[in-house]
Structures are given as structure tokens and as C-alpha cells.
Design a binder for these strands. Structure first.
Length: 293
DNA sequence: ACCGTGGCCTGACAGC
DNA sequence: TGCTGTCAGGCCACGG
């Protein structure tokens, strides 16, 4: 579930408490979460044990820890239901891993970091890093990822694939190889703010309109980071267990039948590639339909 | 190369 | 208070 703002909220929470710390204890349950590791859970634990954390980094929805004297990063992807929780110390009765707790790290200050994921769509992976075309060190696991709109100021960098394709613009916003970090919530919010329907084709939109969509995406995600992201339920909470407060500032997502804040007409929901698409039918003009024979 | 669908999983919620 | 169906913030693999 978490998109860029939620992952960034968690990254900041981790950075505050993990940077400079050394991992003194590791406990892992294995299973689906480590499916991308060729060497499995034991190798992952071996990389983490006694490692000193130097950095907590993020691109799009991927997050990773870097360590002193290691070329490998510990990559965390939360999928739909992944959580990372910090505790000052081990609570009584917390000795063994809880249900859906797949990995637990103990730090040299006694704090613990737990990775929880009921649906196991997320993954935890050790991956080597390389230096990408904009000079950032990123894990090879995330090599196909485009940069995200909050790390690249010049949004023209994202234009070419959008402008040259006849795919739906919403589909491309969700394509992490085109621009990363945007998921279903923020795609709909960015399109609403830009006044563009998600079923417009990329090559049917002007560069100006496309840049406007990218600006809106950066703007809405930046605002969401400031209030800790979007929580609809207890599935998304930050590292301290607190929800984010951006759901009250969503204009269209999850608001089918409610009045559009801009024009007062009813927000509609449609399905695009098996996923909900929320939009205002008057503020976001649909593409012209081909005349049926 | 694209679109649409279904699958991966569990839990929450609505309606009966 | 069940039960059953539907849905979910991500992503990937099919088939057409």
C-alpha cells in the first residue's frame, strides 16, 4: 500500500534511530519475504549481523540501508501491507517473532526493528549497489526504477516516455520505470490537480500538460510527506505506530459520490486495468470517444 | 508493445 | 454471531 510519501515517512523514522548504530542481534523467519535472495535468509542475516548502519536511503517505493565496509545494501520494499516498527527495547513476552513478523533486528542501544507484513507482497533483499546515471548509488535490484519526482528537480527528465507513448497517462504514472514512487492514490490526486483524465493518451497531451501532471505529483506527494502520508486503516503506520493524516486532504481518491472541491459535481469511480480510478467528470475531461459504427 | 485479467496473500468490512 | 463476497496503498506473468 505505501507509496512514496509513506515510505519516506518510514525512512525518516528509521534514519533518526538507525544511522550510526550497529546491529547486534538478528532473527528471521524466512519465507516469501526473502524470495529475491538467491542465498536465502541465512545469507541475509549474515550480512546484517554486526553491520554498522551508515545510511537509510530511498528511491520511489524502495528503501535500503547501507553499511560500513559493505558494497551490498539491505533493500526493503513494503508491497501492500509491509510495516517497519521501532521499539525502544524488547517488551516482555516479545521473545519470539510475532505472527507476520518476518525479521527482527536488535541494535547496540537495545532498540529493536521489526519487519511485519501479513500479505507478504513486500520483500527484503541483499543487493549490490552501483552508481546510476544521475550519480546516485542504488541497489542493482532497483536498477530498472526511474528516479522519483522528489529527487529530480528538472521534470523534463521524465517527459520522453510520456510524450512518445500512446498508453494511458495514468498507466504510465504507475509504471515505476517511467517515474517512480507514484501509486494509485497519488496518481489519481495528481491527475485531478492537473485537470487531466487518466485515460488520456500520453502522446495526445502537450509537454506543458505533462509537466503540469508531474508538478502536481511532486506537489501532492511533498504535501503528504509533511503530514506523515495517507492512512486509511492500521495497515499503514509510521515506525512509531502513528497514522498519517493526508487522507483528509485527498480530493478524489476514495471519494466516489462526494462533491468535487472544485466544482461541486460528484466524484466518479471507474476501473482502469483492474484498479480503481477516481476522478471528477467535469474537472477532468475524458478523452473523446471514437464514434461507434 | 500494449491491454486486460488474474494471481500472489491476509484482513477488514458489508450484507445477509 | 457467523458466513460469504468484495475489496485493498504493489507488482508480475500470462494470453490475446
Amino acid at each position: 500500500m505505501p507509496e512514496l510519501p509513506e515510505v519516506e515517512t518510514i525512512r525518516m523514522g528509521l534514519e533518526k534511530r538507525l544511522q550510526g548504530r550497529t546491529i547486534v542481534g538478528v532473527e528471521g523467519a524466512g519465507g516469501r519475504l526473502v524470495r529475491h535472495n538467491p542465498q536465502g535468509m541465512l545469507d541475509l542475516l549474515a550480512h546484517l549481523r554486526d553491520a554498522q548502519i551508515t545510511e537509510v536511503a530511498r528511491r520511489g517505493k524502495f528503501m535500503w540501508l547501507r553499511f560500513a565496509d559493505q558494497d551490498e545494501a539491505f533493500v526493503i520494499h513494503l508491497g501492500m501491507s509491509g510495516q517497519v516498527r521501532l521499539h525502544q527495547s524488547l517488551l516482555p513476552g516479545q521473545v519470539s517473532l510475532a505472527k507476520h513478523e518476518h525479521l527482527r533486528l536488535t541494535l547496540d542501544d537495545g532498540a529493536t526493528v521489526s519487519f511485519v507484513d501479513p500479505r507478504t507482497f513486500g520483500h527484503l533483499t541483499i543487493s549490490e549497489v552501483f552508481t546510476d546515471e544521475i550519480g546516485r548509488e542504488v541497489p542493482t535490484l532497483a536498477a530498472a526504477l526511474a528516479p522519483d519526482p522528489l529527487e529530480v528537480e528538472d521534470r523534463r527528465r521524465f517527459l520522453a516516455p510520456l510524450k512518445n507513448s500512446s498508453r494511458f497517462v495514468k498507466t504510465m504514472l504507475l509504471d515505476q520505470r517511467v517515474v517512480s514512487g507514484i501509486g494509485n492514490i497519488y496518481a489519481d490526486e495528481a491527475l485531478f490537480r492537473a485537470g487531466v483524465h487518466g485515460e488520456r493518451r500520453g502522446n495526445a497531451l502537450s509537454r506543458k500538460v505533462l509537466l503540469g501532471i508531474l508538478d502536481s505529483a511532486a506537489e501532492v506527494m511533498g504535501e503528504a510527506v509533511k503530514v506523515g502520508g495517507t492512512s486509511f486503516d492500521a495497515l499503514y503506520v509510521d515506525t512509531e505506530g502513528n497514522p498519517g493524516y493526508f487522507s483528509r486532504r485527498l480530493f478524489v481518491y476514495g471519494r466516489e459520490g462526494e462533491a468535487c472541491a472544485n466544482c461541486g459535481n460528484q466524484i466518479q469511480r471507474t476501473v482502469l486495468q483492474s484498479r480503481s480510478h477516481f476522478f471528477c467528470p467535469t474537472c477532468q475531461v475524458r478523452p473523446r470517444k471514437k464514434r461507434l459504427q
